[in-house]
Design a protein around this nucleic acid. Structure first.
Lengths: 225, 225
DNA sequence: TGTACATCAGTGAACGCGCGTTCACTGATGTAC
DNA sequence: TGTACATCAGTGAACGCGCGTTCACTGATGTAC
């Protein structure tokens, strides 16, 4: 892609230090997306990708961890935004849930490197924003709420569920979606069924709806771009 | 544990070369289980753990990959055996499925390092036996068969399902279990509900049974050791 | 029973590599007088 | 308008480290004669 650029790279003018910072973020994001094993990303790789001396990074980030952290924060926000946007056009709680979950899975499958880095637990020293920062919980919260909404919408399941059960149900749905994305990405050589079918089936199980009822919503929500 | 052993380590007698080989396998297994990030395991670490020169490994394995491969094959067989044994005492297809899945999840949670190495997709050059070798498929096959058995056992779900649907249903159950183990291991700092409840709930969803019906079976199958 | 030799199990030093991090520096550009 | 100076953005060389891999070797033990 962008290797072996012989141009000696002009220094940025005064006051334009953030230009390199942006380039570093961009390059790190590109590498995390591209590398087969994103957790092996190094500081010198980023420097090479931008065409800059390794030491130059220290002017903008204390270390590689901070840079990766920054990138992942952006990607996490992007994922959250994608889910929110997908749910915007949804009519009713079930469609909302389907749209959100389909968006989640598709983002994960479309960005295996970043997904792995965010949720795969492969990064050193737990420098991903998912943990403790409460960021992952925010995303989980939206799934919990959406699932609870879809459940409440369903007349036959009128057994009262407390917030504890709602949270647990959402958590379980999240683990199912995560497992789907993780295995789909890790074992791409397997003969996978259609992803939309798997999403629909998962949601059917977790909402108690029929697959047929869901499948149309998934196809509608599928790859809006 | 076993660091800084000052004993100069006596050479094994003639014809006893496999002793070191066994020690290497044992040490690699211990490190994969212990290391926070098992994918960072190095050849020199293994050598140090055993108390041997790095070069000595080459007499028994062509490289670290072969050694790790060997260990993972053992661990995979162990997991398969644990699941098989768990199912042995089960009465009926549903109990069989519950026992197998509970064993899977508990093994994964009890061996986070090895589980990650086996199924996390974090190892370089895809040297894990799960892929292509058909080993992971064997495990998946047992879940598919067990789930199909439990489904068939259920009178109300008499809608004919072809082997294709059965395979897809088993695959989906596997992804759910994998997601549960993966997130449980990666985010141990989260306030997780009781694992047995989560397993029971997952199986309830995937079999169409009530949670109550499953939960007792899970508790029975729970941690037989 | 003695001795030369082959084999086995593992050693130890060295290599070249990529890594993170440091440090004094450079050279263009803006600012004060 | 000119000039000295400060600042900014980034450089380049060096460091010590752990790594995988190689290669000639060592020294104990078994075997052939």
């Amino acid at each position: 892609m962008s290797s072996e650029e012989a141009a000696p790279r002009r220094r940025n003018p005064r006051g334009q230090g953030q230009i390199l910072k942006a380039e570093l973020v961009e390059a790190a994001a590109r590498l995390l997306a591209t590398l087969e094993r994103p957790e092996t990303l190094t500081l010198r790789q980023v420097a090479r990708e931008v065409g800059v001396a390794p030491a130059s990074i220290y002017g903008h980030f204390p270390d590689l961890g901070a840079l990766v952290q920054h990138v992942l924060r952006l990607r996490y926000d992007e994922l959250a935004a994608v889910m929110r946007t997908a749910a915007d056009g949804a009519e009713g709680p079930l469609a909302d849930l389907v749209a959100r979950c389909a968006a989640y899975v598709h983002w994960g499958v479309d960005h295996p490197g970043q997904y792995r880095t965010l949720f795969g637990g492969g990064m050193p020293a737990e420098l991903v924003p998912t943990n403790a920062h409460g960021a992952g919980e925010e995303l989980l919260g939206s799934v919990v709420a959406s699932l609870a909404g879809a459940r409440q919408d369903q007349p036959e399941h009128q057994d009262r569920r407390g917030p504890e059960q709602e949270w647990q149900a959402g958590l379980l749905l999240w683990t199912a979606l995560h497992g789907l994305v993780a295995l789909y990405n890790a074992h791409g050589n397997m003969p996978w069924p259609d992803l939309a079918d798997l999403i629909a089936q998962t949601l059917a199980l977790h909402t108690g709806r029929s697959v047929d009822e869901i499948v149309e919503l998934v196809r509608t929500a599928d790859r809006p771009a």
